[in-house]
Structures are given as structure tokens and as C-alpha cells.
Amino acid sequence: MNKNEQIRKYLDGELTGEELKNFETEINNSPELKNLVDSYRDTLNQFKKIENVNSEESYFINIVPRFHESMRNKKRLKLKPAFAFSSIALVLTSILLVFILNKDNQVINPVHEISSEELSSYLKSNPQDYYEMQLTESVPQEYDSLFNSIFFNELNIDDNSGKYLVDVTGNEFYNILDEISDEDAESIYSSLISKKIY
């Protein structure tokens, strides 16, 4: 057993019988060893004194209430993410609902589901929209005049007749159609089918 272990055992009270007796004799015969052991014992005594020191009671009285307070705060904090999550979910659901409802309102029936009567009625009530859409929106403006000149050229008609034709095919077409009698219509039809255009 080395000296340090012997000193530790002695200070810890682990030496008994012959071992204890021999070590005590050694201490008494060696002032150096005695000083060393005394200095260790003194250190231990100093630390032992701080085992029970008088301390502020108010601090210890408040430990448990503070603990419960922090527990309550933690529970409150736990609720916050749940609240935030449900708020976000609510907002997203609202946006989704608005989107779905608007989408339902904007559904356009496919053309094949529209009856010919409905189409005819629509075209009669909105001729301007129809022609404007057909002649101005679907045809790029730069091709419009070119198209007109080719068209008039092919039909061998002058500018004034062309303008009239455009007007007729535009706003007044259906009004004129309504004013033509059955005999006139028959006459126009007969002259048209007998006329050789090409």
C-alpha cells in the first residue's frame, strides 16, 4: 500500500487493528508526515464547517411556488403552438373554401352542352360581341386591313360596298334580315344561287 492510500484510509477511518497502530506510530515518529496528515485534516474540517450554513429562508420558501409557476408558464407555452397551428389551419381552410366556391361559380358549360336554340338566342342578343370577338379580337389588327383588301378583291367589290358589307354583317344584319319579306328573300336567294361568283 502506498503512502497516499494509507493516509486516505487513515483519514477515512478505514485503518483498523495492527494497521492503524503502525500508522499512528509512524506519524508520531515523522513530523513531516504528521504535518501532512494534519494539513489534510484541517482542509477537511474547513469544508465540513460549510455543510450547514445559515442561509436566507425566504429563498427556500419560494422554491416550490416558483417551480409551480414555471410549470404553469410551460403549460401556457405548450398551448401557444397548438393555437398558432389551428389558426393557420383555419386560414388555409377558409382560403380553400373561397377558392372552391368561386371556382363553382365560374364553371363554363362546354360548347357541346349548349343547345342550338341557346346558341342562336345568345348570338341574336349579342351580335356585336360576337362579331367584335370574331373580327377584331381573334384576328390580329395588322392582318385586319390586309384580310379586308384580299376579301374585297376576291369578291370584286369597291371600298364603299365593302364598308357597307361590314356594317351589314355587323350591327344591322339581323335588323335588315327581319325587315326583308319572304318574297324578297326568295328573290335574293334565287339571284344568289344563279350568280356565278368565281
Binding site: 497516499n4 492510500e5 493516509i7 486516505r8 483519514l11 494539513s39 489534510y40 484541517d42 482542509t43 477537511l44 469544508f47
Partner: peptide
């Protein structure tokens, strides 16, 4: 460990 600590502190 205990004895090392005691020695250093002393």
C-alpha cells in the same frame, strides 16, 4: 479521485 482533490485543495 477524492484523495487527489484533497491533496490539491490542501
Amino acid at each position: 479521485n477524492y484523495f487527489h482533490a484533497l491533496r490539491k485543495l490542501t
